[in-house]
Amino acid sequence: MLYRILSLQNITFKEGIKDKSILAIFFIAILTFIAIIIFPNLFARDIGKVCIDVALSSITLLGLILIFFTCSSILSKDVDKKTIYIVLARPFSRAEYIIGKYLGFLSLEVFVITIISVLSTVGVFICYHYNIHYFPKHFSFYEYLLAILMIIEMLAILIALLLFFSSLTTQGFTATILTLASYIIGSSLNDVLDTISNSSDSIKINKGIIYVINLVKYIFPNLSLFDFKLEVAHGVKISSQNITTAFLYGIIYILLLISLSCLLYKRKEFP
């Protein structure tokens, strides 16, 4: 079984890594490498902050591009053009298909993010070297790496969401759109909740809306939990409790999504 899953992971990875969009991603990565070195110099004091902002944001952005272009096009092809037949004609159970596919996308994501991270970390190093005094006092590369790991976990949730939505819909495109929508909701969820709880004294907000938003909070992944960009950029200590909460939340969410999609795929037909 493991052998089968790994073989599927392997071709998914291969298919992804040879895709043209990967080239585009690496091209943008090189541009951001340059941006990391140049852009912060437009600022007066917080050069380190801007540098890390650009580095972490570009890692996130490129990860998102990878998911919404490469991964989703591979998945759409599977469903729309029936490349899934070559997998399902083998003794794969549907659950093995999902897990293999997930691992394939995940390894692709980790691989690409690792390369981009190395590139941008070199950029940050260069920037750090020339502007040591403009970096926050307590800036640590350890926390910087931790933030990257959290970005990877957030992307892992998005991949799981993509697979989950593809099990609900018959078109790959719809799954992509739904995933995009839940990214948008998931990443702004915390801020919406903040706004509502802050403004509740001055402006009265309908109780119904609060109820709906609380419901949404449990359904959609709260992706801002995984955002440690500001803390790292300013050398604010990341509380280990936040990290553990986010980590466990992510793992549970992924497991839940994967097992749900396994169940749904069991009943899915590919005419």
Binding site: V50, L61, Y183, S188, V192, N198
Partner: peptide, 21 residues
């Protein structure tokens, strides 16, 4: 402000930089 924050979609730091610029 809150609207700008909500629509930053996890890129608050970068948005802040750009607003400053």
């Amino acid at each position: 402000n809150s609207f700008i924050k909500i629509t930053s979609f996890g890129f608050k730091g970068l948005r802040s930089d750009i607003l400053y610029l």
